[in-house]
Design a protein around this nucleic acid. Structure first.
Length: 421
RNA sequence: GGAGAGGUGGCUGAGUGGUCGAAGGCACCGGAUUGCUAAUCCGGCGUACGCUUAUUUGUGUACCGAGGGUUCGAAUCCCUUCCUCUCCGCCA
């Protein structure tokens, strides 16, 4: 959520920033609503002041044994006015909040302007496409031959869009999770967290999935809970309503969780194999930091995700999402894509974003600045990284002409010394 | 699931209708004192929003888990709800 005050100060700039995301926002209507709301606040508070002083007087008079029935009647009438105006005030405040909650963040000045993913510039790449003197196979062909994924059997349990790893496939997934968590906690300074996988409305409002994207989420109506679409939700909301001491920042969390996404409207989009699933595993990184540090931190965080891929020796590239493609809550996002030679495609495995104070304002996450005053922190997060497509890339990049997979060396200790699947 | 207890400021802990944004203690910050340290003394010390204003300052309102009610007036009384703890039951 953005601060209404920034809209007041520079409505034209706000309109232009939203326009760069392809949104036409009636900023003036928001400001009118805000003005109305503030007038109501002033009137209500004036009446409350009168009521408070009158009530105090009534108390004193009664104590002195005097009659106060006339004053009591007058205050009762004020009370009725207050209730009516206060109701109006609450409605105006909620109306404004509802609208602000549904408006996306401003893109940072360094974000390239564009309309769609076609306009996202590639800013660097690492490694090389593997030299494969044979026709590289897609992972679903490899996996079936190796007997490590069970797509059809998963469908009998849960329908399309679910996978079931077996044998070395399951172990590889577990090995990758351990490897990534060890790397982030051991070398990158993150604290490991195992959060709940079910969360309430407030958590999802805090990070921006609600109110706009409810159709993307699985929910459990009986209990008012939702399955998390990413560990970002529980990790970021861990500090909802919290004020950090300045020396506690940056606070870096990492955690492994499954992620649940309905993927409504994604039918037909790269759904073959493990490219897109309703449930997948992911290791996530979340950072809370001082506003001045957040852009440097975004580079660091992205580097941490890249470190995973570099240590695995996988060919990838990094792109900057343009203004037209950037996520709802984000001010700037880098996507990391792995090369999948069996599909001749780049697969997104990580998305690293700086949300500035957008989530912090919604979730009320603050720190005490140099003046001792509470100030919103900046939040960042990045996948570090998502499992299914990482498995896909390992299978497709590391496949041999006989269909076997030579495992990256760094994973072998996690695989009980196995070198090849 | 059943029975009971409780949710107050960074922590602890008073407060059962008015002068309570809330005693006391701890922690923290500033100052004084003291060869040093410790101790002592004085002062300060919540958050949000509105108005004011030079983002100084001032002032007002709200907030004692959340929501509603009673009342001239609610931390305090009533209702609903959430959460925590203890015991019992069940259970990985």
């Amino acid at each position: 959520m953005l601060d209404i005050r920034t809209l007041r100060e520079n409505p034209d700039a706000a309109k232009a920033k939203w326009a760069s995301r392809g949104l036409d926002v009636d900023v003036q209507a928001l400001l009118d609503l805000d003005d109305h709301r503030r007038q109501l606040i002033t009137r209500v508070e004036e009446l409350q002041q009168t009521r408070n002083s009158s009530s105090k007087e009534i108390g004193l008079r009664k104590k002195a044994g005097e009659d106060a029935s006339e004053a009591m009647e007058a205050v009762r009438k004020i009370g009725d006015q207050i209730s009516a105006l206060d109701k109006e005030k609450t409605e105006a405040t909620q109306a404004l909040e509802t609208q602000l909650m549904s408006l996306p963040n401003f893109p940072h000045a360094s974000v390239p302007v564009g309309h769609s993913e076609a306009d996202n510039p590639v800013i660097r790449s690492w490694g090389e496409k593997p030299e494969q003197a044979f026709e590289p196979k897609p992972h679903w062909v490899l996996a079936e031959a190796l007997g490590i994924f069970e797509f059809e059997r998963a469908a009998t349990l849960s329908g399309a869009g679910f996978s079931c790893l077996t044998g070395a496939g399951a172990r590889l997934s577990r090995a990758l999770i351990s490897f990534m968590l060890d790397l982030h906690t051991g070398e990158h300074g993150y604290t490991e967290v195992q959060p709940p996988f079910l969360v309430n409305d407030d958590a999802l409002l805090g990070t921006g999935q609600l109110p706009k994207f409810a159709e993307e989420l699985y929910r459990v109506p009986e209990d008012g809970l939702w399955l998390i679409p990413t560990a970002e939700v529980p990790l970021t909301n861990l500090y909802r309503d919290h004020i950090f001491a300045a020396d506690e920042l940056p606070r870096n969390l990492t955690g492994y969780t499954p992620c649940f996404r309905r993927e409504a409207g994604a039918a037909g989009k790269m759904t073959r194999g493990m490219n897109r699933l309703h449930q997948f595993d992911k290791v996530e990184m979340v950072t809370f930091c001082k506003p001045a540090d957040s852009y440097a931190r975004l580079e660091t965080l992205t580097g941490h995700a890249e470190a995973v891929l570099q240590k695995l020796g996988l060919h990838y590239r990094v792109i900057t999402l343009c203004t037209g493609d950037i996520g709802f809550s984000s001010a700037k996002t880098y996507d990391i894509e792995l090369w999948a030679p069996g599909q001749q495609a780049w697969l997104e495995v990580s998305s690293c974003s700086n949300f500035e104070d957008y989530q912090a304002r919604r979730a009320k996450i603050r720190y005490r600045n140099e003046n001792g005053k509470p100030e919103l922190v900046h939040t960042l997060n990045g996948s570090g990284v998502a499992l299914p497509r990482l498995l896909v890339a390992i299978l497709e990049q590391c496949q041999q002409d006989d269909g076997s997979i030579v495992l990256p060396e760094i994973l072998r200790p996690y695989m009980g010394g196995m070198e090849r699947i």
